[in-house]
Write a protein that binds this DNA or RNA. Structure first.
Lengths: 275, 275
DNA sequence: TGGCAAAATAAACCTAGGTTATAGCGCTAT
DNA sequence: ATAGCGCTATAACCTAGGTTTATTTTGCCA
């Protein structure tokens, strides 16, 4: 490795060429017995702990969450299958949030100490991790803009669009339909609104024939209109990919790596977390 | 370099030892003629441009800002002397925000292409940049929590505390007094509230004897109370430092590097930006 | 010294969304 | 069955903060 690694981090376009192989290697570098099952509600780490490992989410949903002293909480990031969690604590070395499974799922834990070996194996991986961190930061910035300047209705619409787009990329949504394993309270905590208002807003969107939600199954009935309302510009989700974004959702094929059903021990269909 | 560099990134505590020297080297690696004067209102980069360099802010204030189609805008980050701007676009390669000088100031531009040489010179610099990115992310996350869960009054109080703490670290505040070169409209755009309400809230804080603002000079009269209101926990600002945060503000000595007055070409006292 | 433009105040009014309360619905466990 | 719990829905009410419109203050410049 050596110079090659840093070059590949700082000459950004290098990483557009082989992200997939590298993510794959990230998964495959560790033997299957490192794969761990988690139940909905399980805690991956807690605020204040030392951070000495990364997690790769192979199936299921997770989130990072901040609990306030007054009892309320805030969901900061939503993690989907294929996501790497804990990257932003590599430097600081301690957790500033909690990470919780939203559904059952399988995770793979990588101690920081194992990273150098991983980089030896596939030099571009470091660049990839760096790119992922940057992408996450882009998502945070985007979310901040949206939270501060848009109505509750728009925020909810945007959240749905974002989930849908991300799920399409990993092949977990068919047509406009997908499983959104969050309670209205979860959504409220993620979007900075009250659960009551989430309910109201959902009813409203449903009444307009835009979406439909039953149990935790969500169906987007009018994607175009929904994206209009949300003013959804998916480019911020695309910085990891070679393309320029803005292509219509329908043409997309999964690019980012998600674990295929076959290489996972049974149950990857998350059951919903109980509060 | 080589292995050493990555080790130093991923063995986090290495960087608690020598951050100062490295930031210094960041500054000194480039000859003085690279130092450029900027006027308040100058644009360092614009949304959509290609990102091929970093900026080090040596004096003055700057911010990253997002303009909305409807004409409103959002200040995303505030940069103070000593800050490095543009880090989070290294991987993605294009700007997703605008960067604007809030006051007159001096900046130093580092093309991405010059980074490898810089890393050769002082291997820890890479780790430092990495750490700074993480720190920025922590600030973003913190801001998100605050923007979503706190009242306008608390947000304003928090913003004041944050600026004060950051300015203390670089030696640009004496006692509770410092220059805050933002108009109420700027503050409104940074805090997601209306300019009118910023004014109202400022008046209220002043009436309670907490702060005092004249022109762009701000005086904190009752720091303790202000921090209570803001529920200000400065730890998120401290991840670059070896200490554990939480020490009282009064005991702090400047640690992060700020350019000393002497090594700057005259006028570093920013004049306020005209809108 | 006077005039101008940008900021800051102030008052009146209005609405998005929070809060509280109640009720229905679909589980699981006795 | 039925009791109990978690999630959702709907309605009534209330408040923080937005918007609009003046009025005042301030600094800048000729």
């Amino acid at each position: 490795m050596n110079r090659v690694v840093f070059d590949s981090i700082f000459k950004r376009f290098d990483l557009h060429r082989t992200p997939e192989q590298d993510v794959t290697s990230l998964f495959e570098h560790f033997p299957e017995d490192q794969l761990r099952h988690q139940n909905a509600g399980d805690c991956l780490w807690q605020e204040g702990e030392n951070a000495d490992s990364l997690f790769v989410l192979r199936s299921g949903w997770a989130c990072s969450v901040h609990y306030h002293k007054e009892g309320s909480r805030q969901l900061l990031e939503i993690y989907l299958p294929g996501d790497v969690l804990g990257l932003c604590q590599i430097a600081s070395g301690n957790r500033r949030t909690n990470a919780v499974m939203l559904t059952d799922g399988w995770i793979c834990e990588l101690p920081h100490s194992s990273l150098p070996a991983l980089f030896d194996d596939s030099p571009n991986t470091a660049a990839l991790l760096f790119a992922i961190i940057n992408q996450r930061q882009a998502m945070l910035a985007e979310r901040q803009v949206i939270m501060m300047h848009r109505s509750a209705r728009q925020r909810l619409a945007h959240f749905i669009c974002e989930c849908h787009t991300r799920l399409l990329e990993i092949g977990e949504s068919y047509q406009g339909e997908f499983l959104l394993p969050l309670t209205q309270q979860d959504l409220a905590d993620a979007l900075g609104m009250s659960a009551v208002h989430v309910s109201r807003t959902f009813s409203q969107l449903a009444a307009e024939g835009l979406v439909q939600r039953h149990l935790f199954q969500l169906i987007i009935l009018d994607a175009t209109r929904l994206r209009e309302i949300a003013a959804f510009d998916e480019r911020y989700l695309k910085s990891l990919r070679g393309d320029e974004g803005l292509s219509s959702i329908e043409q997309q094929t999964p690019v980012f790596i998600s674990p295929t059903a076959s290489d996972l021990p049974e149950d990857q269909d998350g059951k919903v977390a109980e509060k």
